[in-house]
Design a protein around this nucleic acid. Structure first.
Length: 891
RNA sequence: GCCGGGAUGGCGGAAUCGGUAGACGCAGCGGAUUCAAAAUCCGCCGCUGGUAACAGUGUGGGGGUUCGAGUCCCCCUCCCGGCACCA
């Protein structure tokens, strides 16, 4: 055995061994239970970053642990290879996205291999290859024919200068990132997946996922946003034509308080009213400026303008003014809302802002009372600005003075008993909803309805580097799906985009084709699919990546569902919801049998780092990598020129902010095992990890110490592991700690998935071992037991060094290392130390027999020196005994 | 703005079911070894007072429940993620 730990040598030789013996190749046929361990596949951005290392190390630890436990493990890897960054890189370097992508894949594959992940590389796939995406096109065609995919108009960000559609990320402060032009919303035709048809199942399915984190399930449930309410209409006459303005509300009980209606800027009523009102047309145009991102819409100042149109309140017959509101989303419900300023905060803010314009200015109708609010006397205060607490009594007095308040109070939106609501007075929420819904239904103007916040999934992208949408546009036949035997529609790979629209539009060889239906001349669709489509089913394709006769074969059902899925928390909603949806689509197409794709989910926290930038003369930002910046008491400066840079805040490592830390330097300096150990040790996996280099040294030091300890032990010659015989106390304690550690580490990895504490426990064990002296056979045999177990426990985390050390401890044992088992007899302990508290403060310790009775413990506690000191002869008021933990004496 | 999460020593973090706050590691300080340094080993290490024993105090801020709160409840601040075309 070598005296010195040389990671580069042992890692290279171990990896060569794994490769030549195909150690990580998954068995197709096995009597062992299966364990499908999947980490979210990477976008091939160029180099691995720390987030990847963290993600894939977690997966590898779980995969290797389960293999040690006798499972038949599948751990595949692939590439989410279509996407926007490839087009950006293509424009910057004048290289086709395909070339850039394949080069990145090659580099990143080498990096993943260097980290020693137990991946079955024979199943590798890349989504940009036609043997993958052809099945996506095949499914598209089937779903299109089944009506699950349909076409409708939708808003996109339009850059009028570059004449191109922009991603939300490419809109910065309302302007195009390259042109700097003010971005506009533009309506274009797009294909949609009817995900809303599965909304109920996607919501209900969350309850059948006990292996998913609560936070993810809560986020998805809120995203789907099921709400029960009433959809109803305000009738109107326009140019002597009758019409209905439809709205949805979850608060039909407040319908008697409707003061106005607000419609989205794109709403037909708004468009109509703007015809003869230039100022309204200008306002609507202003609403259409800026990005389509909901975050931008929601943080915008709430503005509106009266259309001058009036609709009729369906129950009171009152004329209700219609406004255009920039906060009303056309994509939600009917693009219009009723406004009840008395009971909705957003309506309230809007009303206060424009109160002069509501003509005549009328006090807010207040139909509800607060639950449990006692109605006593009329307050003496009057007029504007009255305290909200005085409001409820004041409005409840019949014929009493109506009041106006200027500050919102959370209680205004609580549900209560109807007042000032005509025939509905005195009804509670449920009764009022039923009565009002029944009345609206009798009028033919509304009904109860379940509404989802979830919207159908628009998948058309006006981009080149994606999977072509297999549709042909024929003047005679319309939109025709490509025939199955014509698939795949292959994306040409030699194109360099230039930022001005989709270059496919200019490729006659791609666009011009014949109609699959009438064989006449036709044009191919040039939009490509959202890259989330590729990542929605790759987990299934890994079971049978070589299958050429269909999307999936029977192996998919053998492996699915994925037993453990691991990926960043940033995917909690979109990717994970789309993948769940796709699984149900595939199930309904007879491709898979299960209902859910991922049994257990681990959402790793993000690796975040400081961002640094400089603003150029044109206002654009140049981002600098943290590795190129010094940030000390003199501020942040660029290493290369010593000039200051602006600190942009700590954010998720990303290419756009250039704050990714390259793990390569770490691997080069310390080896893969140190990189893996430190990443797992630095923080628990679900927590976000702010990157710092400090501490890596400590992880490396631990591995060196482990090596040396085994070396010194092995140098003394072979010894069998401890099996039986009388041990001195010191060794008994060490063995107890060893088996407690095995128990803890197993639980930490398998159940808690908290690897940092597993590592800490082994470190403690090693610290205890090093303190034991002596080279007698008994001592050496216990030491052998501890070292064998320690290397086995660390093997999933630092496999290279552990396999080498284990082979030194067990010469000739070349088989798969197994997980150590707990010796229950080693755990037995005769006495236990209890904490002694007086009035909840720690005042001492007592030692009692392990299973001592409560009264024995109490007596021991009361006779202890500490108790006598604090009791000063008085009897205790109460004694709390928590067996195995503590005794609390209350004075 | 809405939804979800987080805040514990100089730093990363531990405390798993309401029961010893600070495990483990980093940094720092002191010592050993060395011609010297690196590496390694030993010891100390929340804050305040005290030579010490010990006492007080302490888990973002404010309030509450409890014999006992980092952990539960209410309110607030700041930070991070997502918001449908970044992936």
């Amino acid at each position: 055995m070598q005296e010195k730990y040389t990671p580069s040598d042992i890692e290279r030789s171990r990896q060569a061994h794994w490769e030549s013996s195909q150690s990580h190749r998954t068995l197709e046929k096995s009597t062992s239970p299966k364990y499908y361990c999947l980490s979210m596949f990477p976008y091939p951005s160029g180099k691995l970053h720390m987030g990847h290392v963290r993600n894939y190390t977690i997966g590898d630890v779980l995969a290797r642990y389960h293999r040690m436990r006798g499972f038949n493990v599948l751990q595949p890897m692939g590439w989410d290879a279509f996407g926007l960054p490839a087009e950006n890189a293509a424009m910057a370097n004048h290289v086709p996205p395909a070339e850039w992508t394949y080069a990145n894949i090659d580099h990143m594959r080498t990096q993943l291999r260097a980290l020693g992940f137990a991946i079955d590389w024979s199943r590798e796939l890349a989504t940009c290859k036609s043997d993958y995406y052809r099945w996506e096109q095949w499914l598209f065609v089937r779903l299109f024919k089944a009506g699950i995919i349909y076409k409708k108009m939708a808003s996109v960000n339009w850059d009028p200068v570059d004449a191109t559609v922009l991603a939300n990320e490419q809109v910065i402060d309302g302007r195009g990132w390259r042109s700097g032009a003010l971005v506009e919303k533009r309506e274009i035709p797009m294909y949609f997946f009817r995900i809303t048809q599965y909304a109920d199942e996607l919501l209900a399915g969350l309850d059948k996922l006990p292996g998913w984190p609560e936070r993810v399930k809560t986020m998805q449930a809120n995203w789907i946003g099921k709400s029960v309410g009433v959809r109803f209409a305000f009738p109107y006459q326009l140019d002597n034509q009758p019409g209905k303005l439809w709205v949805f509300t979850t608060r039909p009980d407040t319908i008697m308080g409707v003061t106005f209606c607000a419609v989205a800027a794109e709403h037909p009523l708004a468009t109509h009213a703007a015809k003869n009102k230039p100022e309204l047309a200008a306002f609507i145009a202003a609403c259409k400026q800026g990005s389509v991102a909901e975050a931008d819409m929601a943080t915008m100042e709430k503005k509106g303008m009266d259309t001058g149109l009036k609709v009729t309140h369906p129950l009171t017959g009152e004329a209700i003014p219609v406004w255009v509101g920039n906060y009303v989303l056309m994509s939600y419900g009917d693009g219009a809302v009723m406004a009840v300023p008395a009971h909705d905060e957003r309506d309230f803010d809007f009303f206060i802002r424009y109160k002069e314009q509501f003509s005549p200015l009328k006090p807010v109708v207040a139909p509800l009372n607060w639950i449990g609010q006692e109605i006593t006397t009329s307050p003496s205060g009057s007029g504007v600005g009255i305290h909200p607490l005085q409001w409820a009594p004041s409005i409840s007095i019949p014929g009493g003075e109506a009041r106006f308040w200027t500050e919102w109070d959370e209680r205004f939106s609580e549900k209560g008993i109807c007042v000032n609501s005509g025939k509905y007075d005195g009804l509670n929420y449920v009764q009022a909803v039923d009565a009002i819904a029944a009345d609206l239904e009798a009028l033919g103007l509304g009904e109860k309805k379940t509404q989802f916040r979830l919207r159908d999934w628009g998948i058309s992208r006006q981009r080149y580097w994606g999977c072509p949408i297999p549709i042909v546009h024929c003047a005679a036949c319309g939109d025709v799906p490509v025939a199955e035997d014509q698939l795949p529609v292959v994306l040409p790979e030699n194109v360099v985009p230039d930022g001005a629209g989709n270059p496919l539009n200019r490729r006659a060889d791609f666009v011009d084709c014949t109609c699959p239906q009438c064989a006449g001349p036709a044009q191919r669709e040039t939009d490509t699919m959202d890259t989330f489509v590729e990542s929605s089913w790759y987990y299934a394709r890994f079971a049978c990546p070589d299958f050429t006769d269909g999307m999936l074969d029977g192996r998919a059902n053998a492996w699915l569902p994925v037993d453990q899925y691991i990926g960043g928390i940033e995917h909690a909603i979109l990717h994970l919801l789309y993948a769940r949806f796709f699984h149900k689509l595939m199930r309904d197409q007879g491709l898979v049998k299960s209902d859910e794709p991922f049994l257990n989910l681990l959402t790793q926290g993000m690796v975040i780092a400081e961002t640094y930038y400089r603003e150029n003369a044109d206002g654009k930002k140049t981002w600098f990598n943290p590795a190129d910046v010094v940030n000390d008491e003199n501020g942040a400066r660029l290493k290369s020129d010593g000039q200051p840079v602006i600190v942009g805040g700590i954010e998720k490592m990303s290419k756009s902010k250039n704050n990714g830390v390259d793990p390569q330097a770490l691997i080069d300096l310390y080896g893969a095992d140190t990189a893996r150990l430190f990443t797992m040790f630095a923080a628990p996996p679900e927590q976000s990890l702010e990157w710092s280099d400090a501490g890596v040294e400590g992880a490396h030091r631990f591995l060196k110490r482990l090596w040396r300890t085994v070396y010194e032990h092995v140098q003394q010659g072979e010894v069998a592991i401890y099996q039986a015989g009388e041990l001195r106390d010191e060794l008994k304690t060490l063995r107890r700690q060893l088996h407690q550690t095995i128990q803890k580490v197993s639980d930490d990895i398998e159940r808690r998935k908290q690897f940092n504490t597993a590592i800490a426990a082994v470190m403690e064990l090693m610290n205890a071992l090093i303190k034991i002296e002596g080279s007698d056979t008994l001592t050496r045999s216990v030491r052998q037991e501890v070292l064998e177990a320690a290397t086995r426990m660390l093997a999933p985390i630092v496999p290279h060094i552990c396999e080498v050390l284990y082979a030194e401890l067990q010469p000739g044992a070349d088989a798969q290392i197994t997980w150590p088992t707990v010796d229950e007899s080693a755990l037995v302990q005769d006495s236990v130390e209890l904490m002694l508290q007086v009035n909840g403060k720690l005042r001492g310790q007592i030692v009692v027999a392990t299973h001592a009775a409560r009264d024995v413990i109490e007596a021991a506690a009361l006779s202890s020196a500490a108790a006598i000191k604090y009791l000063e002869g008085r009897p205790p008021k109460k004694v709390v005994v928590v067996p195995g933990r503590l005794v609390n004496i209350v004075l």
